[in-house]
Design a protein around this nucleic acid. Sequence first.
DNA 1: ACCGCATGTTACCGCTGTCAACATCCGGCT
DNA 2: AGCCGGATGTTGACAGCGGTAACATGCGGT
Lengths: 218, 218
Amino acid sequence: MGTYHHGNLRPALVETAVGLAQASGPEGVVLREVARQTGVSHNAAYRHFADRDELLAEVAQVAMLELAGAMTAEMAGVAEREPLPRAVARLRATGRAYVHFALAQPGLFEVAFAAHGGVTLDDEPDEPAEPDESDEPEAEDDGPPEGDPYALLGLVLDDLVRAGGVTTERRAGAEALCWSAVHGFAVLHLHGPLRDVPADEREQSLELLLDQIQRGLL
Amino acid sequence: MGTYHHGNLRPALVETAVGLAQASGPEGVVLREVARQTGVSHNAAYRHFADRDELLAEVAQVAMLELAGAMTAEMAGVAEREPLPRAVARLRATGRAYVHFALAQPGLFEVAFAAHGGVTLDDEPDEPAEPDESDEPEAEDDGPPEGDPYALLGLVLDDLVRAGGVTTERRAGAEALCWSAVHGFAVLHLHGPLRDVPADEREQSLELLLDQIQRGLL
DNA sequence: ACCGCATGTTACCGCTGTCAACATCCGGCT
DNA sequence: AGCCGGATGTTGACAGCGGTAACATGCGGT
């Protein structure tokens, strides 16, 4: 039982690293501490990761996934049925979820974007062909369980275009606008100059931001 | 003469620290290296700064100042005379300057916001309800050499309201919208997922962003 | 049964931030 | 003048970090 060889260390390391990141952000992901908490000697990690940054990148991926999860979850909560209001509500939901995730999970959020080896998305997604659990035939437009917040945003915006909420020409920079606004809002309120704005005021401000994004697109 | 006592070390340290920050971001501001480059032994800094973070905070202040400077400079370049187009152009100028500064001076920009002891502006600037405007027959509204980007944005937005470009109610969350969008854009393109977007495409996207900010306000 | 190779360990290096003790200079007191 | 105390700078030490190198262990294929 007490395997000298841990068996599957890599995922275990990532797991504890995620915990550390959650608790203390990127600075908290200290290789030696990760090893310590995993009950293994430091340097063990070097059999699985080239260096600390590689581990951090892995954690970043997990964080991105959780962010995307939070967004889809909030999106799924939209009850509206009429196409256009629904699309709008879903767009707002993603934005809200993004910001709320950032504030609820500052460590993970920070890691997700602080890791210099993060997602680049310069190119089109390659459809990784993961033979994941084949779900029941989804009749809705929710699309596949995306792990990429950016792609998620893209889908929502596509819906909005289909529903007539956005002209195709304004669709162009839409990702950048939405993402920038929401990301900036999150960052500024997280460790930026707006970090001391009280929560209720912040929520109010967020809704205003979503209003104005919406207005900027329609 | 080459005093054993350096004379005015504190500013000298800050200066070299700024240089380091400029070259390599927050991580580059290494206490020992700062001391080394200043031609002084490590620990000398501890007579002037409680710890590294305090020095970094000082650098952050300088960086903020430079950012504000870049913004005012770009604003000053606006030639338009008609009030409303001028106000709009000035708003766009600040946004453009903000992003361009971030990309041209990534190190400083990063330090400006990474330093955890940065500007807080938790409270409103006391909402003077604009009792002025009747006192002095001022020549121009350029205002004093502001050192705070946020205040600068506030001034520009006030101008925009005066010029009729923004209704007073939409003025409310305007700072947050503009700042968030522009800051997010900068961050995402600097070390975020959009970092590999080619420069020309980025510029184009930025103008679109400014368009949409504008549309969201009007 | 054996041996190779992946995996984990111990030892060490240079680097950092920070504390403590010591050295030096300057300005004010007598 | 001469002294002296506090501010300023220096040297020395320590723990913790990321990373490399050499060594130990044990699983899997033969």
